[in-house]
């Protein structure tokens, strides 16, 4: 019962509406519960075949970049993710899932997937009263229109928990900014890929709305 990467099926393969990528990176069920809340059935899987067959993909994650990349390589999901992006499938990265979509992470000096040019850096803050990780609710200001950010007002806050932040190489990939001492990219995107540094599954109604828009998204922007 296998489907090769070139697409020769030996048995009918299920096409899941949403697959949440499982790579031992925590909080997957909270993403699944949030999808259920907005009316979508999401399955959690670490099977590259199932990822390739899915209609759309959520790439969540908390944890460390190094162990996440090792897990993705071991299971062949790194290749599946690249293929899914090339196939034009709507893909949503969340937190670590966004960070490892870039080329490189300072965390454990890890080469990452390179779906979008850029890197992930650790917060180095001058103000002693600012804590790392950046934990809590902060405003996400859209700087460019995108179907997933439709309706997000500049003062709308989302929930963040992270010690590293994304630095896309090109401004063109930057869709929203958040301020923590300085501005950083809270949302990045390119074609059918969109990534958010905050946790929509823990951001109340605003977060649920973003997930709903992802479910309705055709992958174009």
């Amino acid at each position: 019962m296998r489907l090769s990467l070139s697409g020769h099926a030996t048995a009918a393969l299920v096409t899941d509406p949403i697959v949440i990528i499982d790579y031992d990176a925590g909080n997957l069920r909270s993403v699944q519960r949030a999808c259920a809340q907005v009316g979508a059935v999401a399955v959690i899987s670490n099977d590259p075949q199932r990822i390739l067959a899915a209609e759309r993909i959520i790439f969540p994650g908390v944890g460390a970049a190094g162990s996440a990349m090792r897990s993705l390589r071991r299971t062949g999901m790194d290749a599946a993710l690249r293929q899914a992006v090339a196939d034009g499938k709507p893909l949503l990265g969340i937190c670590l899932g966004l960070q490892i979509s870039l080329d490189h992470s300072e965390e454990q000096d890890t080469p990452t997937l390179g779906l979008i040019p850029g890197e992930t850096r650790r917060f180095r803050l001058d103000q002693p009263e600012l804590k790392v990780p950046h934990m809590g609710w902060n405003a996400v200001r859209p700087v460019k229109a995108h179907p997933l950010l439709e309706g997000v007002a500049p003062e709308d806050e989302f929930y963040f928990v992270h010690a590293y932040y994304p630095v896309p190489a090109r401004d063109a990939n930057q869709y929203a900014l958040t301020t923590y001492e300085e501005d950083f990219a809270a949302a990045i995107g390119q074609g059918n890929y969109f990534g958010v540094q905050f946790h929509p599954e823990k951001s109340g109604r605003f977060g649920l709305r973003l997930l709903r828009r992802f479910i309705d998204w055709d992958g174009r922007c």
Binding site: Q37, K202, G207
Partner: peptide, 8 residues
């Protein structure tokens, strides 16, 4: 609670 409440 986790089914209905979407904050930390």
């Amino acid at each position: 609670v986790a089914k209905e409440v979407f904050i930390p």
